[in-house]
Amino acid sequence: MTVKVGVIGLGAIGERVLNKFVQHPLTEVAAVCDVSENRLEAIKQKHNVTTYTNYKEMLKDDSINLVYLAVPPKFHHRIALDIISAKKNFLCEKPLANSISEASEMAQAAEEANIVNAINFPMVYSNVFQSFKEKIVNGEIGTVKRVEVQMYFTTWPRAWQKNDWIASREQGGYIREVGPHYIQMVQDVFGNLKNVQSFVDYPEDPTLCENGFVARMELENGTTVMFNGLSNIGQKEHISFKVYGDKGTVEITNWSVLSSSEGDQAPVTHPLQREDKYDLVEELVKAMNGEEALLVSFRKGYEVQRVLESLLGNA
Rank of each mutant, 00 (worst) to 15 (best):
I43T: 04
K135L: 04
V307F: 11
S36E: 11
P122G: 02
V149D: 06
V5A: 04
F241V: 11
G248F: 10
A97P: 13
E282C: 08
M123I: 12
E218M: 02
D276E: 13
G245M: 01
L219Y: 07
A110N: 11
V189Y: 04
L230S: 15
H76M: 03
M1F: 01
D205L: 09
R146L: 07
L230I: 08
R169L: 11
D188C: 06
R216Q: 09
R299M: 12
E177Y: 04
E237R: 10
L311R: 09
V243A: 01
S261I: 10
D62H: 15
K286V: 09
L10Y: 05
A70W: 00
N314W: 10
H47Y: 15
V128P: 02
Y52R: 03
Y174E: 04
P72E: 11
K87C: 06
S168G: 10
G14P: 10
R169Y: 10
M151D: 14
E237A: 10
Y244Q: 08
G234Q: 14
N65L: 09
V3W: 09
K94T: 14
G173Q: 09
T53E: 08
W156T: 11
N38L: 02
Y302H: 01
L308P: 06
E140T: 15
E102F: 14
P206N: 13
E170I: 01
Q235C: 07
I252D: 03
R78Q: 15
T143E: 06
K277S: 15
G222Q: 06
E262Y: 05
G172C: 03
A42R: 12
K300W: 11
G222N: 10
A266K: 08
S297A: 06
T2C: 09
I100R: 13
A113D: 08
N54L: 14
T253A: 10
I183G: 03
L308A: 07
Q108T: 13
G301Q: 09
H270A: 02
S240N: 12
E148S: 01
N127F: 06
W156D: 10
N117H: 13
K242A: 07
F190S: 08
E170A: 12
V268I: 06
H76Y: 13
A86K: 11
V285H: 15
R169M: 05
A86G: 14
P122W: 09
T223N: 04
T143Q: 12
G9Y: 00
Y55E: 02
D246Y: 01
E283K: 14
I115G: 06
V307Y: 04
N114G: 10
Y68L: 05
N221F: 05
E140C: 05
Q305D: 02
K4T: 02
N98D: 12
V225G: 01
Q45R: 08
H181W: 09
H270K: 03
E210G: 12
V257I: 08
I84D: 04
N19T: 00
N195G: 00
V124A: 00
F190M: 14
M106Y: 00
T27Y: 12
T253S: 08
